[in-house]
């Protein structure tokens, strides 16, 4: 945060970034993952994505019209929520589930807490957990080429070996957005290059996760095991697109690292010792809940306040 203290005298250079430009960048960055799932599963995932985005935007519009608030659908944040939720769903889910999830995400998690900038946890992830708890069967049935099979993470959990190359490309089972690690990483590189996200949270998150995996995974430095965990499940999607959400993650530099470490440990605990194979969603929303505390502890002291209790 030291660069924040070097405030020069006016006039200041103003950044060009707006909520709108950031959200549109995120939408662009998610295109590769979406496009790949269409290539892989056909047009049905596209329908899920569009329905989910439409439901999210429509819910936001109707709520803001109904309560006579400023309509904020043009900034694209509702569309991003809808898209992220859709990318977290299996490719064969009936269309009413993304609608229900989007309504819950926008209405309950976002708007009832005050709209954009006020939500206490990531709306898309909260909705995903809501659906996962409610419709466990539907949400965890993944089929590849009409054959229902275990996801790579489930294979790893039961002690098997996975094919890393096909996981990188995306020839495995999983949700719409998480199957292809490369497609997700392409989007992440775009966001980093556009300086939309900072690398602090994803790197501290993934780093902590790997360290915990080596220490407690029971496989030591087994490369196949570690890479399988990194490419499998929602880890990459979560680390680059959801753990970097501006509203629900710390704004301080040290806070970002603390947050990354926290969700890294939580993800590892959920994956290794939890009942289900994945755990990224729960780890991130639990981390979201700790953000006010993390920010309180890591808030840099203003010059002249050194050593005093503010």
């Amino acid at each position: 945060m030291n660069d924040l203290l070097n405030v020069s005298s006016s006039p200041h250079v103003r950044g060009k970034a707006t909520t709108r430009s950031i959200m549109y960048d995120v939408l662009i960055a998610l295109l590769p993952a979406t496009a790949f799932s269409v290539y892989r599963f056909g047009l049905y995932p596209l329908a899920i994505v569009l329905v989910s985005m439409l439901a999210a935007v429509l819910t936001e519009y109707l709520y803001e019209k109904g309560t006579k608030r400023r309509v904020t659908i043009a900034d694209g944040s509702a569309a991003v929520t809808g898209l992220l939720l859709a990318l977290n769903l299996p490719s064969t889910i009936p269309l009413w589930i993304p609608v229900l999830g989007s309504v819950f995400a926008i209405l309950v998690v976002k708007q009832l807490f005050g709209g954009i900038g006020q939500n206490f946890m990531n709306p898309a992830l909260a909705a995903r957990c809501f659906l996962l708890i409610s419709f466990t069967g539907r949400m965890t049935t993944f089929s590849v080429d009409s054959v229902t099979g275990a996801t790579p993470l489930a294979v790893l959990k039961s002690g098997g070996q996975v094919d890393i190359v096909s996981m990188l490309i995306g020839n495995t089972g999983g949700t719409i957005g998480e199957i292809s690690t490369i497609a997700v990483l392409v989007g992440a590189v775009y966001l980093l290059a556009r300086k939309v996200i900072s690398w602090l949270i994803p790197v501290s998150y993934i780093g902590t996760f790997v360290v915990c995996l080596v220490l407690f995974g029971g496989h030591g430095l087994d490369v196949n095991f570690i890479l399988g965990h990194l490419c499998g499940g929602g880890l990459m999607l979560g680390a680059w697109f959801m753990a970097t959400d501006y509203v629900t993650t710390p704004i301080t530099k040290n806070g970002k690292i603390v947050f990354g470490v926290l969700i890294g440990v939580l993800t590892c605990v959920f994956r290794l010792f939890g009942g289900s194979a994945g755990g990224v969603s729960y780890a991130i929303i639990l981390g979201n809940l700790c953000v006010p505390l993390i920010e309180k502890v890591t808030m840099p002291k203003a010059f002249g306040w050194e050593g005093k209790q503010s």
Partner: peptide, 15 residues
């Protein structure tokens, strides 16, 4: 009608 099971679990009580 497919029941939304979360409502009979603890989070549903709070909601």
């Amino acid at each position: 009608y497919e029941p939304i099971a979360i409502f009979v679990l603890a989070p549903g009580a709070f909601l």
